[in-house]
Amino acid sequence: MEFSYEVRDSYAEVKADGRLNMVSAPKLREFVTDVIAGGSNRIVVNLEKTAFMDSSGLGALIGCLKAARQAGGDLRIAAVQPQVKMVLQLTSMDKVLTAYPSADEAFSND
């Protein structure tokens, strides 16, 4: 899995391309923690190219969400693909991790 980020006007967009599994989950957590430490506490994780996520990956997103909130911000997810959507729904975590159609829309109403 490959991570990248870009600081936008009101948030930082993190892209996670590949499979978000037990191997890549700790790396996502570390990556987002670094982005937050760099001064961005409003994070959008763009999952457009995340074809797969398991419960480890979900746990990492929750950890990142908590880290963003502890820093006074928030974390939102965008461009969720069918498998990721299925995992979010089956675990009822779609209520906690709100999915937006695109990264642009995630913080557009704040």
Partner: peptide, 10 residues
Amino acid sequence: DSESGRGLAL
């Protein structure tokens, strides 16, 4: 807000 423990249910 738990970060683990969902695997078996899933």
